[in-house]
Nucleic acid binder design. Structure first.
Lengths: 128, 128
DNA sequence: CTTTTTAGCAACCGTATGGTTGCATGTCGG
DNA sequence: CCGACATGCAACCATACGGTTGCTAAAAAG
């Protein structure tokens, strides 16, 4: 806390003017983090093709053990990206597209903000 | 390697029919991983509002030290989300929206795939 | 030239993460 | 009831990650 709060002359509360989506980012970051692993991304890719798959089925696509896949699915489930329903002696996992939609919207907002900023910069540069 | 490849009776090459975007996911996962931290997400949110900021300026928005922010910026730069240009004695960081666009497209593909799968399921359920 | 500002580098620390193995549990088919 | 199958749980391990501190280097200010 010593190196902070004395530097950066006048840059306080720079997030005040940001869109609401980009302010409280707790759960959102967990969604991105859940997608931020090749194995999990592949799991999502498989699941988004539809249907519900058991752990054993999903394990067949990866190079790691069944327990490893279970852990990854748990991470995805904690982020709300995926949901597992128990059916008999097996648990079937399926995509839960809500959080992914939210993440997509966030990236859209970022891109849009960026373009708006570019437009303003251009307008300023072209002003007489 | 023992628990694998014997289970899951007939589920080999399930990614064969997936869109190309969802197959080789190395760099893509690193982009999601870079966004998967609240501090970094906030940095991106600040940077997407336009302009180039120094480390000291960016540090003023966070609760962590300057070195911590530097590390986070390095992670973002390694993923290609952000770029830093050295100007005099300071380094100014700005957004590099290419990778974020790519990530957004990936999420769009996932969502589209999911809807297609839902449509097929519905069509099957309604077939006489 | 000396001081200040801004940043980079390196070592260190605690905890989370990805992965494994071994065993226990529930459930389906006879 | 019994065996086989699919999963759950817990312990364990190595490494990556988030964060810090201390020191050094380079540019700007005086």
């Amino acid at each position: 806390m010593s190196a902070r709060s004395r530097t950066a002359k006048g840059a306080g509360r720079r997030d005040a003017g940001l869109p609401a989506i980009l302010r409280s980012n707790e759960a959102l970051a967990s969604v991105f983090a859940a997608l931020g692993d090749p194995t999990r991304l592949k799991l999502v890719a498989v699941l988004c093709a539809g249907g519900a798959f058991s752990i054993a089925q999903l394990t067949a696509n990866t190079e790691i053990s069944r327990q490893g896949v279970t852990k990854h699915l748990q991470v995805l489930a904690d982020a709300g990206v995926v949901r597992g329903v128990k059916l008999g002696r097996e648990r079937l996992w399926q995509l839960e597209p809500g959080q992914i939609e939210e993440a997509k919207r966030t990236l859209e907002v970022i891109g849009r903000q960026w373009e708006v900023a570019l437009g303003k910069l251009k307008a300023f540069a072209e002003s007489p």
